[in-house]
Amino acid sequence: MLDKTGIAKRIAKEVKDGYYVNLGIGIPTLVANYIPDDVDVILQSENGLLGMGPFPFEGEEDPDTINAGKQTITKLAGSAVFDSAMSFGMIRAKKVNLTILGAMEVSENGDIANWKIPGKMVKGMGGAMDLVASAENIIVAMQHVNKAGESKLLPNCTLPLTGIKCVKKIVTELAVLDVLPEGGFKLLERAPGVTVEEIKAATAGKLIIEGDIPEMVI
């Protein structure tokens, strides 16, 4: 079973040289720490920055330089700053190659819910609806089951949707799965020490298992 760092490390392997990447809040943000040095990527932060750098050194925080999670960050040589309309313009125009974000639920046809629990929690969708509606390559980083032990990989989402038929890949503490265009979660890899039976038990949606499922290499 993977911890959050493990999920981030496994997703980092999906990031290819030359990509522009948008990272959501939480586990996706950690992915930046594990992208290999020989993979040259530029991180887009939807509040208006291309070329997001690491956190500043203590004492060098700049209140005017933050990421979409409102964390203090740095700019890199070659960074570019722009306004919010242009930021979502480049997202809508599919200039961003990969979007990595968290989710509360994903359905077997690629629907995603991650912004609202009616009557309990309303944080808002932020930029997630824009990202999932336009991105061609979306990876979801999340726990396989919720705190109540219920599967988050479902036949249909029960929470208000963020977007439809958009998620392509999911990485959880248990497994790596593709969401097939015709529907269904195709099991690609098992987390270290996790059995196919355990993944079956934690997946409520249609799970497709073909042949031996390799253990993931991180």
């Binding site: 939807e46 997202i91 929690m121 932020g126 930029g127 609806m129 824009d130």
Partner: peptide
């Protein structure tokens, strides 16, 4: 904010960030 929203004291329209900007 969350309290006023859930209690109905405040009317809130949540819209996607790119939609807001555009």
């Amino acid at each position: 904010f969350e309290r006023q929203l859930l209690s109905g004291e405040l009317e809130v329209e949540l819209i996607p960030q790119g939609t807001l900007a555009t």
